[in-house]
């Protein structure tokens, strides 16, 4: 009896010792040296692996930062200046402060302004719909409305507004990781400088059709009328391909263009309300409460059925 216990203990110990020796040599042979700084940098990064910096993940960003030893071309949009400062501290480097950005939706063609012309019945995916045809409204440029940007957002910073059928960015949560910009097949999403006190002015339209054609399919389409260009004192607005564009670098946020726009699609965000500012399409705001897309389409159908 005692013998068998002894043998068991001995054989197991011998086995353990052999395994330990093998492990020792293997670990010596396959040892990989890694700069401890990479780990340190990775620790201060947000570790969301969103890819907003252009690298496949935070680890890759950290590796690049350590190996390049230069932070001028690297920026973590999610962490922002604070995190970059910490990274610079770890590496003993200097880093420039960058203006923070947020994503903006450059389409204001909600269901009431941009009428449906057909019913899309394919897979609920913007890219599929956009590759099939020019969309379920007359506008070939505007938002498809199937929410691929919302799906792409890792930070819950976007949602689809059921009433308008358009995505909305929650600025507080947006990290400017660029995911929605790459996801959108119509190139509607754009990163925009956050601006002084979060204030910004941009054009909510990407339709490059001629004015009349654009207006025909969408009441709030930019027709390229250049009224905004005329009133702008800072040369911040350019008209190209029948579409106005505001240069955020030059824009002084005076809001002159907002008031002259017939289509009301120059959007000013986070400004205090202006007293004399006319309401955005009185007729539309009154109706806004009871809009649902399917219902509208159905009603339209019924009406025409009767006719």
């Amino acid at each position: 009896m005692s013998d068998s216990i002894l043998y068991t203990i001995l054989s197991l110990s011998a086995l353990g010792a052999i395994a330990a020796i093998i492990l020792y040599f293997v670990s010596r042979k396959f040892k990989v040296y890694e700069d401890p700084k990479i780990g340190n940098v990775e620790e201060v990064l947000p570790t969301t692996n969103c890819g907003g910096c252009g690298f496949p993940g935070c680890r890759a960003f950290a590796e690049a930062a350590v190996s390049k030893n230069d932070l001028s071309e690297l920026h973590c949009p999610v962490g922002g200046n604070e995190v970059m400062k910490q990274v610079a501290e770890i590496l003993g480097l200097e880093v420039e402060e960058r203006d923070p950005y947020v994503a903006v939706v450059r389409c204001t063609g909600s269901v009431e302004y941009r009428k449906k012309t057909n019913i899309y019945d394919g897979a609920p995916n913007c890219t599929i719909a956009a590759s099939l045809y020019s969309g379920d409204t007359g506008c070939a440029y505007g938002c498809v409305g199937l929410g691929e940007c919302v799906d792409a957002c890792q930070f819950d910073a976007m949602y689809m507004d059921e009433k308008t059928g358009l995505p909305v960015v929650i600025e507080d949560k947006c990290t400017a990781c660029n995911a929605c910009v790459t996801a959108c097949p119509k190139e509607i999403m754009e990163l925009w400088p956050q601006g002084r006190r979060n204030r910004k002015i941009y054009v909510g339209c990407v339709n490059t059709d001629k004015g009349g054609a654009a207006r025909k399919v969408c009441e709030v389409a930019c027709s390229g009328c250049a009224k905004c260009d005329e009133v702008c004192r800072y040369d911040a607005i350019t008209i190209e391909n029948n579409l106005a564009r505001i240069d955020p670098e030059l824009c002084k946020l005076c809001r002159k263009c907002v008031d002259v726009c017939d289509a009301h699609n120059i959007i000013a965000v986070n400004f205090p309300p202006k007293k004399e500012r006319p309401p955005r399409k009185a007729k539309a705001t009154a109706k806004k409460e009871d809009v649902d897309i399917i219902g509208m389409v159905k009603k339209e159908n019924d009406k025409k059925d009767e006719a």
Partner: peptide
């Protein structure tokens, strides 16, 4: 299931 729809998406990507 909309298989071809997604096949097309895959091919585009």
């Amino acid at each position: 299931r909309p298989i071809v729809d997604y096949m097309r998406l895959g091919k585009i990507m």
